[in-house]
Design a binder for these strands. Structure first.
Lengths: 145, 145
DNA sequence: CTAAAATCCTACTATACTGATATGCAATGG
DNA sequence: CCATTGCATATCAGTATAGTAGGATTTTAG
């Protein structure tokens, strides 16, 4: 039941960009320094986020990344799903294809469906903007992580 | 974010025993036939549940397993935890030992804590008895899974 | 008493996933 | 034209997953 580092790092990266949301492009080097994640690993993570249309990128000198939308327009759920593929606790809930032949008579399926629901409600009910505001509220003297 | 087969099968096994809760010992062979899981794999799963004190076992001919307590006295959470080890979405939330050095300044930690909370509330708020009753309600013509 | 049936114990294995690191090409700005 | 940055692909060690296998031990039915 673990979120992978890719999902966790993606959220940190997106929140970093949300906090440093000046309109200018932020290099992975800068994010790497603040987040303590290697540039090479960040590159891998950012690829998924760019493909999902969450980021705009700029190559070359003084290039980097910036958010494509406002922080309030990203749910944490969609960010995590872009990296993890699925947040469902069991494969049967992914789609029709993965449904097991016993789904009609499965006595535990309703329980898993319920778990899926509470997770989805929570992750899709939280936006990057929420995390950003929460950050300022805590009065953390270091917004770098 | 997936529950392993061990966790899922453990829940099916426990629910099977809850439904066939006659006081007599039920053999893995019977459960295997109903649940369509090999006896050998069930043996592995049942070991963890017995060690956790959830089951009473009887060796020898016409031996098997039965619940140690009433179905209402098992939360799904504790069953899953016995197999999965932890249901926390990130290692930092497992215990003090696994806390990362940046936890004090981690801007995403409150979000993960919140996710952990909604998951815990749900899985610990559901008992085997709940699943059993739900099963009868659905009018499923097959209680075998 | 014995054989079958069951739990119990330990080891093994193939596959996939995780968490990276490495190498090099492509584009951009100064 | 060259330093800086993104982009693409490959590689890799370690761990976890989802089982399978073989046999020892215990108990009871016949």
């Amino acid at each position: 039941m673990r979120i992978s580092t890719k999902g966790r790092y993606a959220l940190r990266l997106m929140l970093d960009l949300a906090i440093h949301n000046t309109g200018e492009y932020i290099s992975l080097k800068d994010i790497s320094a603040r987040q303590n994640i290697t540039v090479k690993y960040l590159e891998q993570i950012v690829t998924g986020l760019t493909r999902a249309g969450f980021l705009r990128s700029q190559r070359g000198n003084s290039g980097g990344y910036r958010l494509a939308k406002k922080p309030a327009d990203y749910t944490v759920g969609e960010i995590l799903r872009a990296m993890e593929g699925s947040l469902e606790p069991i494969a049967c809930l992914d789609d029709e294809v993965n449904q097991c032949p016993r789904s009609g008579e499965c006595l535990t399926l309703p329980f898993w469906k319920g778990l899926s629901d509470v997770i989805r409600e929570y992750v899709d009910g939280t936006t990057l903007q929420d995390l950003k505001e929460q950050s300022y509220e805590t009065g953390a003297d270091n917004y770098s992580i």
